[in-house]
Design a protein around this nucleic acid. Structure first.
Lengths: 142, 142
DNA sequence: TATTTATTTGCAACATTGTTGCAAATAAAT
DNA sequence: ATTTATTTGCAACAATGTTGCAAATAAATA
């Protein structure tokens, strides 16, 4: 059984990204976290550890480009990021699961086993991607 | 049949908001538009007409608070706003319709007649609100 | 392993977006 | 017409996101 560091190196290498401190650290945080993270979370969690704001932006963008993480839509100006499952690739982010935002703890979760139902669009509309974000109370807060 | 200005005054008054130039102008833009609008749209459309940035922020927030408009989630830092239908109120934004973002024209539309299907959440999760944003190609761009 | 090459990082500077307090202007109430 | 309450615009600030470039680091090569 591989340790986390090795897993992370593998993910980076298979995405053709060099293995650097920042990238390892950020992926570690994703793997430790049970929910989505946003940019400011990284600035907080990495505070004092001398990771530049700009580097965090660029790292997250690189992970998006390579299909390692995906964005979750929000109604505010924050951008939530979560790890993709293994099936995702750079070209095709098929994260066909529901996202859940808990109004109590504020956490956003990927409900990996909750499928997105088919939606009957009006005539003339073609769907490429469907995002579902449910808000409410999660099982830990109820 | 009432004209738009009168309709707008009615909406504002019934929400207990004073009828001011900025509010009328912004509601007009919403009524003219066939899709969602974001803050920067107003800065552009109202450019030269001496409406302060801050006033636009406060106007949009007031409209949200009164249930006149609602936000549509996005995966970027923009915030999209669209008119609510008459059934919405300050306490209850029940906009149970699907939102559609066209990848061609960039427009975001409310598909008012497309219902959001029921979603079976895992045990322990309680849903208060469900947001569905479909992206693809709209009927005008196909 | 040492050296070269390619990539990534941190810094500085800047652009954009969102917020707050307060006096002046405007709308509503009297 | 006057008073009262609300809204606006300005200034100043805070937070967030972007770009160019030299220095640092990782990967590739010898």
């Amino acid at each position: 059984m591989k340790n986390t560091k090795d897993q992370i190196s593998d993910i980076l290498r298979s995405s053709h990204l060099s293995v650097t401190d920042t990238r390892v650290k950020i992926l570690e945080l994703f793997m430790k976290s049970n929910g989505a993270l946003e940019h400011s979370d990284f600035e907080k969690k990495l505070a004092g550890q001398a990771f530049d704001r700009v580097t965090i932006y660029r790292t997250l963008q690189a992970f998006i480009d390579k299909g390692i993480i995906h964005k979750i839509p929000t109604t505010d100006t924050s951008v939530q990021y979560a790890l993709c499952r293994s099936e995702c690739s750079a070209e095709d982010h098929h994260d066909h699961h529901v996202h859940f935002k808990c109004e109590e703890c504020g956490n956003t979760l990927c409900l990996d086993d909750t499928d997105i139902p088919a939606i009957q669009l009006p005539k003339g509309y073609a769907a490429h991607n469907i995002e579902v974000v449910v808000s409410g109370v999660c099982k830990h807060c109820k």
